[in-house]
């Protein structure tokens, strides 16, 4: 067992939320070491599971400075190369404002305020939908 690797994934848990959909929450403050760890873990898991979407939830990130924003953009580009698209959730009005002040353009990245919105976006792209049981009666 590679202890360092185990500790890395303990600090940065990633889960399969649904077939083809991974979920990774980020809390605290990103620095380049942690951003690299997160990128490694996401790429490894995307590769191992063949997932099509990763929901990266940054609601718990305490500040988005230019370095953090740059890391986030890099992470999403890297997963895309593996055929796994990152959906950035937790784009609260706070985060959005900071991004505007930074002048960071998230381009055509899918961003949502809530994780549920991100899940919905992934579902709809995978041709799935959530239906209330009542509607089926």
């Amino acid at each position: 067992m590679d202890i360092e690797k185990v500790e890395k994934s303990e600090k940065n848990p990633i889960t399969t939320l649904w077939d083809d959909i991974l979920f990774m929450p980020v809390i605290g403050l990103l620095d380049s070491k942690r951003a690299q760890d997160i990128m490694d873990i996401m790429l490894e898991e995307a590769d191992a599971t063949n997932a099509r979407y990763i929901i990266l939830d940054i609601k718990g990130v305490a500040a988005v400075d230019s370095a953090v924003a740059n890391h986030l953009v890099k992470i999403t580009k890297a997963t895309k190369l593996l055929g796994c698209e990152t959906i950035l959730s937790g784009i609260t009005p706070n985060v959005a404002q900071s991004l505007v002040h930074l002048g960071i353009d998230l381009g055509n990245l899918i961003t949502t305020a809530r994780v549920s919105g991100a899940l919905e976006a992934a579902f709809s792209r995978l041709g799935k939908t959530v239906v209330s049981v009542d509607a089926l009666k």
């Binding site: 305490a62 500040a63 988005v64 400075d65 370095a67 706070n94 900071s98």
Partner: peptide, 10 residues
């Protein structure tokens, strides 16, 4: 609060 924290990090 978020913005000031971001400025400090910068």
């Amino acid at each position: 609060v978020f913005m000031v924290a971001t400025a400090l990090v910068e």
